[in-house]
């Protein structure tokens, strides 16, 4: 297959890999941040209780 026909698929492959991986990283980081916040408030609550 020649360049003119093939390039959209080649670009599609490279973009989709980056897109999926980046989305996964962002989702993980968001969840991690939320969990860290909850962890912080919980440990404060535990401390207050003694």
């Amino acid at each position: 297959m020649e360049f003119q026909e093939a390039w959209p698929y080649v670009v599609g492959v490279y973009m989709s890999i980056w897109a999926v991986l980046l989305i996964y990283v962002i989702v993980l980081q968001n969840k991690l941040a939320a969990v860290k916040r909850e962890l912080g408030s919980l440990s404060k609550a535990v401390e207050r209780k003694g």
Binding site: M1, E5, A6, Y9, V10, G12, V13, S16, I17, V20, L21, Y24
Partner: peptide, 18 residues
């Protein structure tokens, strides 16, 4: 599993291109 999904996406695109 994330990478398996990526294989599927890229595999389908490659099949189409080739």
């Amino acid at each position: 599993f994330i990478f398996v999904l990526l294989v599927m996406i890229t595999g389908v695109l490659w099949t189409r291109a080739a």
